[in-house]
Amino acid sequence: MIEKGSSVHSTGSGDPRLDRRYAWAEAALKDGDAQAAIEILDQTLSEAYGFTAAWHLFGLAQEALGHNEDAATAWRQCLELDPADHFGARLDLARIGAMPAEDAASENFSGTLFDDYAERFDSHLIEALQYRAPALLKAALARACQQIERPFHFDMVHDLGCGTGLMGEAIRAETGFLAGCDLSPRMVEKARAKTQGDGRPLYDKLAVAGLASFLASRPDHSADLVIAADVFVYLGDLTPAFAQSARVLKRSGLLAFTVQSHDGSGVIVGEDRRFAHAELWLRQKLSETRLLPVRIEEASTRQDRDRPVPGLLVVAERN
C-alpha cells in the first residue's frame, strides 16, 4: 500500500531553512497535530508560494481537520504549479469527491512511484501484502479456457504494467511470444534481468511505456491474450485500455485482469489512493468495446492493514 501522505517527487524548495520547516510540518502531521502542521506551512508558503510539496502537505493537514474545501483548494494549487501531477493531487481530489474518479489517473505519479519502489517490490508485495494476483489470475484464466473449450496456451501475449515480471513468471509456460510494458524504467530493468529455466530471457520484448501507448503501437488482431495483474487499480477510466485491447486481440482472444472493487456504482478512489471499479460498470464498459465477460470472480489479491482488499478477477473474450 502507498501511504496517503507519501511523496515520490522531490519535496525540496531549494531553501534549506524552508525545507526544515516542511520536515517539521510533516512530522507534526504524522504525530496527529494537523493544526501545528498548518501553522508551520502557512509561514512556509507565505515565503515560497511555489513550494509544490508544501501545498500537497497543506491539503493533507486540512483534510485531517475535516476541512475538505480547503484541502481541495491546496491540491488544485498543486496542479497549477505541477500540471504533470507528480504528487498525485488528482487522486486526492477524487478521494474526497472534488474530482470525478475517472479523470484522476496520473502516469507521472505512477511511474515515479514504482521507480522508487522497484528494489523492494517483489519482497514487499509477497511477504508484507500477501500479493497473489498472478496465481489467482492464471487460475481464473485456466477456468475460462476450459469453460469456452479453448486451449490454455497463447501464441502472442501482452503483459500490461508488467512490473518486475511476476505475472510473466506465472504465465510464461502457457505463452509463445511474451511482451511486457511498464511506466517505470527500473521495474522494466528488473523484469529484463529475469530468465526462464533454460536461461533465455523471461520476456521476448519489453518496453518502457504506458499501457495505452504500448497497445496503440501493436498491430490490429495480433494478440491472443492481453493480461493486466494489479494494474487497472491505477487507472480510473478503463475504456481506452478496453478499446485498445479489443483492437489488438484476435477474434476470440482474451483480456484478463484484476481490479479492486466496491459495492457502490461507477469508479471511486479509496483511502489507499487506488481505484476501485464496480462490477456493473466493468460489464457495461466491456460490452461497449466488444468484449464479452466469460468469468467475473470475487477475489482478494492482497492485504491492507491485515485485511483482504475486495477485488475481482475478470476474463473477457473478443467477439
Rank of each mutant, 00 (worst) to 15 (best):
Q146W: 11
Q146M: 12
Q146K: 14
Q147D: 14
I148D: 04
I148N: 03
I148V: 14
R150G: 03
R150H: 06
R150A: 10
R150P: 02
P151N: 10
P151R: 07
P151F: 11
F152Q: 12
F152T: 13
F152E: 14
F154L: 01
F154A: 01
D155V: 05
D155I: 00
M156H: 14
V157P: 08
V157H: 11
V157W: 11
H158C: 14
D159Q: 12
D159I: 12
D159H: 11
D159T: 13
L160P: 08
L160I: 13
G161M: 11
G161N: 12
C162F: 13
G163P: 05
G163H: 12
G163L: 12
T164N: 02
G165S: 07
G165T: 09
G165L: 05
G165W: 06
L166C: 02
L166F: 03
M167W: 09
G168M: 11
G168V: 09
E169H: 02
E169I: 03
A170S: 10
I171T: 10
I171L: 08
I171D: 07
I171S: 04
R172F: 02
R172T: 11
R172I: 10
A173H: 08
A173Q: 10
A173N: 05
E174G: 00
E174R: 08
G176E: 11
G176A: 04
F177D: 13
A179R: 15
G180I: 14
G180A: 15
C181I: 06
C181V: 09
L183Q: 05
S184R: 05
S184Q: 07
S184F: 03
S184D: 10
P185E: 12
P185Y: 07
P185W: 10
R186G: 01
M187N: 06
M187P: 03
V188N: 01
E189A: 01
E189K: 04
E189I: 02
K190C: 00
A191F: 05
A191E: 08
A191W: 04
A191V: 02
R192Y: 07
A193G: 06
A193I: 00
K194I: 06
K194M: 01
K194Y: 03
T195P: 02
T195M: 04
Q196P: 04
Q196E: 13
G197M: 00
G197Q: 04
D198Q: 04
D198F: 00
G199Y: 07
R200M: 10
R200T: 12
P201D: 10
L202T: 06
L202N: 02
L202H: 01
